[in-house]
């Protein structure tokens, strides 16, 4: 545990809180994708071995945070907008499968602990890299916290590399990809939202 991971987690929970308060503007399909990644990841981590109380509490806490907004979105037809191109998910999922099978370090479905990255983990990590693109997440603060979460996790990994001499190439590469996807939203957030020049929209 270090301050970067703690701040990253706080940022992620801030993001979930924003989503719980106002889920208008967030695509239902994108939220489904988030659930598809977040739920198996949390459940796998908690069910394959005890890591720490902090880890368990945070991951269990995340599950309603991603599930409840989904319920809100699909119980209210007005929010079920944007991101209608299902092909993105099909192609994205296929790429993730290929990436997950090509670049994994150990050919096992899942593993409790250890340094290797097995199939399901690798798949889920690459899946988030693609679905985390968040092209349809119009909610600015939600995006800001998501981007901050990713950036802080990069700092977390750098910190762990220096303090523990520990490095996981797959996790770091996919983490960098995710953070890059958020860069344009960060740019818009700072140039338009903070300067008060009106509504945020993608270039």
């Amino acid at each position: 545990m270090n301050v970067f991971r703690l701040c990253g987690d706080v940022s992620a929970f801030s993001c979930l809180c924003v989503c719980l308060c106002v889920c208008a503007g967030i695509s239902g399909k994108s939220q489904v994708a988030v659930c598809l990644w977040c739920s198996p990841h949390g459940i796998l981590t908690c069910s394959t071995g005890f890591i720490s109380i902090y880890n368990t509490v945070m991951k269990v806490g995340c599950l309603p945070g991603v599930g409840i907004p989904l319920q809100f979105i699909y119980s209210t037809c007005a929010f079920r907008n944007s991101y209608d191109s299902g092909m993105h998910f099909i192609s994205g999922g296929s790429c993730c499968s290929v990436a997950g099978l090509s670049f994994l370090e150990k050919l096992t479905p899942s593993t409790p602990t250890g340094g290797n990255t097995p199939i399901l983990w690798t798949f889920s990590i690459y899946l988030e890299s693609v679905t985390g693109e968040a092209e349809s997440y119009h909610q600015r603060h939600y995006l800001f916290f998501l981007g901050l979460y990713r950036a802080l996790y990069l700092a977390n990994w750098v910190w762990r590399y220096h303090t523990e001499s520990f490095f996981d190439q797959i996790a770091v590469v996919s983490g960098v990809v995710q953070t890059i996807f958020y860069c344009d939203f960060f740019y818009l957030y700072f140039t338009r939202v903070l300067r008060g020049s009106g509504k945020m929209s993608l270039p």
């Binding site: 890591i51 880890n55 991951k59 602990t113 983990w121 996790y153």
Partner: peptide, 10 residues
């Protein structure tokens, strides 16, 4: 052994 990085992720 060190805890894997992907265990950190929420």
């Amino acid at each position: 052994s060190n805890e894997p990085l992907y265990h950190d992720e929420l």
